[in-house]
Simulated assay, not measured.
Amino acid sequence: MELQFLGTGAGTPSRERNVTSISLSLSEYNRGSWLFDCGEGTQHQILRTPIKPGKIEKIFITHLHGDHIFGLPGLLTSRSMNGATEPLTLYGPVGIKTFVETSLQLSGSWLTFPLEIVEITAGEVCNDEQFRVTAFPLTHPVECYGYRIDEHDKPGALDAEQLKADGYLPGPYYYDLKQGRSVTLDDGRVVNGWDYVGSSIKGRSLAIFGDTAPTAAAADLAAGVDVMVHEATLEVAMEEKANGRGHSSTVQAARVAKESGAKRLIITHLSSRYLRQDCERLLDECRAVFPATEMAHDFAVFVV
């Protein structure tokens, strides 16, 4: 899996950072991508990447502030004007359905693809063959969520050599055995896949926080994840101001990563007051607490 940051700024776009949107590529599963938030200008950012709007399967919205949703109407209508027919599911807090449907209706827009809008609460959001997504409530002036993405564990390696030694010659049924299923052969023999499959391979995990001040939910949202994405709107010297507006400082983001046992931290959602030359200082504030911290810039790609 790969994370690509389409916008890494807070509140308003700047010359160096657009507002929030993150893409998660699922190409290793022969699937398209998921989008987390869709701030104004997201479709313009996508034009500079390999992301195909028609292959976006799901969009997860953390909250309804404009810098996280104002790009939705444009992206949805452009997806239609380009002839997309693949279905898309949009998840977000209560109100996201009204926002999207009103925007499309008042602008006389139409969609060429099935759009399902799911208004979420805390808890499991979706669960498919490969992933489970859970929403956790955060601390912000409006209803806001963070999303935890857990990849299901994968079956271990199939011991093909032992199968052959036991008289089970290779065939299409090997696929079913690798999934741990029992197979009845043409000669009546029954083969239990679990007898020939090694230990399962633990799935990867990812936590993507929406905007938030320090919150108790962070411990469960990010517990032991491989990658944690967290806002770091302001430097530690401006921590009180950040918290007063429902945001976190650099050091607070790093503390969450350390205390939750995350393996890596990527900070994003930086105030437009910070320029490129300020980035190392902000990153150093995080690394003093949690050394495995990286900073996202627009179009940066991180492998999960």
Results as ranks from 00 to 15, higher is better:
Gln45Glu: 15
Leu47Gly: 13
Arg48Asp: 15
Arg48Ser: 14
Thr49Ala: 12
Pro50Ile: 08
Ile51Leu: 15
Lys52Tyr: 01
Lys52Phe: 01
Pro53Phe: 06
Pro53His: 07
Gly54Trp: 01
Lys55Arg: 14
Lys55Gly: 01
Ile56Leu: 10
Glu57His: 06
Glu57Ser: 10
Glu57Pro: 02
Lys58Cys: 10
Ile59Trp: 01
Ile59Tyr: 02
Phe60Asn: 04
Ile61His: 02
Leu64Cys: 02
Leu64Met: 15
His65Cys: 08
His65Lys: 14
His65Pro: 00
His65Gln: 13
His65Phe: 05
Asp67Thr: 06
Asp67Phe: 13
His68Lys: 06
His68Met: 09
His68Gly: 12
Ile69Ser: 03
Gly71Asp: 04
Gly71Lys: 04
Leu72His: 02
Gly74Asp: 12
Leu75Tyr: 10
Leu75Ile: 02
Leu76Ile: 03
Leu76Pro: 01
Leu76Asn: 03
Leu76Cys: 05
Thr77Ile: 08
Thr77Glu: 10
Thr77Phe: 01
Ser78Tyr: 04
Ser78His: 10
Met81Ile: 04
Asn82Ala: 13
Gly83Arg: 06
Gly83Ile: 03
Glu86Ala: 15
Glu86Met: 10
Thr89Pro: 01
Thr89Val: 15
Tyr91Thr: 07
Pro93Met: 12
Val94Cys: 07
Ile96His: 03
Ile96Gln: 03
Lys97Trp: 00
Lys97Leu: 07
Glu101Tyr: 05
Thr102Asp: 15
Thr102Ile: 11
Ser103Thr: 09
Leu104Pro: 00
Leu104Glu: 06
Ser107Val: 01
Ser107Arg: 12
Gly108Val: 06
Ser109Met: 09
Trp110Thr: 14
Leu111Gly: 07
Ile117Asp: 11
Val118Leu: 04
Val118Glu: 13
Glu119Phe: 06
Thr121Gly: 14
Ala122Asn: 07
Gly123Cys: 11
Glu124Thr: 14
Val125Asp: 06
Val125Ser: 07
Val125Ala: 12
Cys126His: 08
Asn127Glu: 14
Asp128Ser: 11
Gln130Trp: 10
Phe131Gly: 08
Phe131Arg: 09
Arg132Pro: 00
Val133Lys: 04
Thr134His: 11
Thr134Ile: 14
Thr134Phe: 05
Thr134Val: 15
Phe136Ala: 06
Pro137Val: 05
Thr139Phe: 00
His140Thr: 01
His140Trp: 04
Pro141Lys: 09
Val142Ile: 15
Val142Ser: 12
Arg148Gly: 08
Arg148Thr: 08
Ile149Ser: 04
Asp150Pro: 00
Asp150Phe: 02
His152Arg: 12
Asp153Gln: 04
Lys154Asn: 10
Pro155His: 04
Pro155Gly: 09
Gly156Cys: 07
Leu158Cys: 07
Leu158Val: 05
Asp159Asn: 15
Asp159Leu: 05
Glu161Gly: 02
Glu161Asn: 09
Glu161Met: 10
Gln162Phe: 00
Leu163Met: 07
Lys164Ser: 06
Ala165Ser: 13
Ala165Gln: 13
Ala165Met: 06
Gly167Cys: 08
Leu169Met: 13
Pro170Val: 09
Pro172Glu: 14
Tyr173Leu: 10
Tyr173Gly: 11
Asp176Arg: 15
Asp176Ala: 14
Asp176Pro: 00
Leu177Met: 08
Leu177Lys: 06
Gln179His: 13
Gln179Ala: 13
Gln179Trp: 08
Ser182Pro: 00
Ser182Thr: 11
Val183Arg: 04
